[in-house]
Simulated scan of single mutants.
Amino acid sequence: MRAVLPVPAPMHALLAAIASAPRLTDAGRLFHGRGGLHPGCEHWTLDVYPPVWLTTSFQPVDDAALAALGDALSARWAQLAPGEPLCWVHQTRDEVRADTRTMAGQVPAPHVVSEAGARFYVHLPRGFNHGFFLDMAEGRRWVREHVAARPGARVLNLFAYTCAFSVVALQAGAGQVANVDMAGGALAIGQRNHLLNGLNGGASFLPHDIFASWGRLRRGGPYDLIVVDPPSYQKGSFVAEKDYPRLMRRLPELLAPGGHALLCLNSPKLGVAFLQDGMAEQAPTLGFVGRLPNPPAFADVSDERALKVLVYRAPD
């Protein structure tokens, strides 16, 4: 019989969230300790990529913590899905490495999750990123609604990763989406995501360095919507402080009259003013429309630290 280990006191908020967790059908976050609203749990997150529960710790954790998590998840899953096996993956990570372990059950292969009717491939057992960013749910919702009101829109999806924005734009009626990312492997998953959703045309996949491809991007425009969702720091690819201004100054020449740009930044070190001041200096002809709210599950003690998603519009 396994020894009973004491429950670490700082974990009580996370364990309470597990005890009351619903059974999600779409992928989503259930606990966001990173938002600073749960003292002692700042290093914890809990996500569900059905049917898999994913716990993530941004600092090392001991056996007592993992045992407490396992007990809590097993108990809750027995209530939510009697007779079904628990599937739980745990990742411990920092800025340079991630250690991911399957703690219970078996992760589906392939693993497909859904959001608002769209379906996406994810890969939990390896790497930092899982193929689908849960915190961008409001951005995808906005793109879906925005494009639905502008059928046939031409969209440029920069730093496209696995092309979730492209999928929802085409589902909403976009005429053409150009997906650009240096990572050819991510774009290949993006192509599979399109096929998974029955989207057999309307998208292009360009494995290019954006900063070396302005001529090609101009020839493909002008665009009614440009989505800019870069990493905040990726050595050799994009460093926000240095590279975002370079990108901003190109937006006016790529946008159609009345076109919109969706600018995203996920950096706790850079506030809203970084984007707003940069746009005022680099692209003063584009008007600020507003900031999108983040999903409630990603609530943060500071709007300045949280994900920033701003909408700008070109003049008519």
Rank of each mutant, 00 (worst) to 15 (best):
154 R>K: 09
273 A>V: 00
188 A>V: 06
98 A>T: 08
162 T>D: 04
36 G>I: 02
78 A>L: 07
6 P>C: 07
217 L>N: 02
186 A>P: 02
105 G>C: 01
157 N>W: 01
259 G>N: 04
81 A>V: 14
202 G>C: 00
98 A>N: 10
120 F>G: 13
127 G>I: 08
132 F>E: 06
190 G>Y: 13
106 Q>G: 05
199 L>N: 01
144 R>K: 13
246 R>K: 12
175 G>S: 12
5 L>G: 00
11 M>I: 00
222 P>H: 06
233 Y>P: 02
62 D>A: 15
66 L>C: 11
253 E>C: 06
83 G>S: 14
32 H>Q: 05
167 V>Y: 05
83 G>T: 03
221 G>E: 11
209 D>A: 05
218 R>E: 15
227 V>E: 10
24 L>K: 12
308 K>D: 02
115 E>Q: 05
84 E>W: 08
295 P>G: 09
15 L>V: 02
41 C>A: 15
159 F>C: 00
234 Q>R: 13
281 E>G: 13
36 G>T: 05
180 V>P: 02
279 M>F: 09
134 L>H: 11
92 T>Y: 00
45 T>L: 05
30 L>K: 06
116 A>L: 15
126 R>P: 08
147 V>F: 00
34 R>M: 15
242 K>F: 06
295 P>M: 13
88 W>N: 01
304 E>A: 13
283 A>T: 01
8 P>L: 07
2 R>I: 14
281 E>S: 15
279 M>Q: 14
254 L>I: 01
281 E>Y: 12
37 L>Q: 03
308 K>E: 03
136 M>L: 15
64 A>V: 02
227 V>G: 06
92 T>D: 09
156 L>D: 11
274 F>S: 04
122 V>W: 03
207 P>A: 14
204 S>L: 07
282 Q>K: 14
109 A>C: 11
260 H>V: 09
106 Q>N: 15
215 G>R: 12
50 P>D: 10
57 S>N: 00
226 I>D: 12
230 P>H: 12
19 A>N: 01
